[in-house]
């Protein structure tokens, strides 16, 4: 019982720190890389909690579709904010 608790604690802490740093970032291309990293950490948490259907439904969305949409929008508008 020790291993699931330790892995979930470490992954949750890292994802909360990254979520705050995404908000303060001025360069929006680096912010999308942070979002992809948070997605991989969430996949790890779902897997440790023994839910393989949720992992299979979450993986294409968070690693292929979400960065693609943000990069398309950034191409048509500007990259640095303010």
């Amino acid at each position: 019982m020790l291993i699931p608790i330790v892995v979930v604690l470490v992954a949750s802490t890292l994802s909360i720190i990254l979520a705050y740093l995404t908000m303060v970032e001025k360069d929006l291309l680096i912010a999308t890389i942070y979002i992809a990293f948070i997605g991989v950490l969430y996949t790890l948490i779902y897997y440790i909690l023994m839910a393989p259907d949720v992992v299979l439904a979450y993986m294409p969305v968070s690693s292929i579709l979400l960065p693609l949409m943000i990069v398309i929008v950034l191409k048509k508008t500007k990259r640095f904010e303010e």
Partner: peptide
């Protein structure tokens, strides 16, 4: 484990 929605979104992501 699997099903309809998971397989469909994987194929759609691959085509994009």
């Amino acid at each position: 484990p699997g099903g309809g929605f998971q397989a469909g979104s994987a194929i759609g992501a691959t085509l994009s």
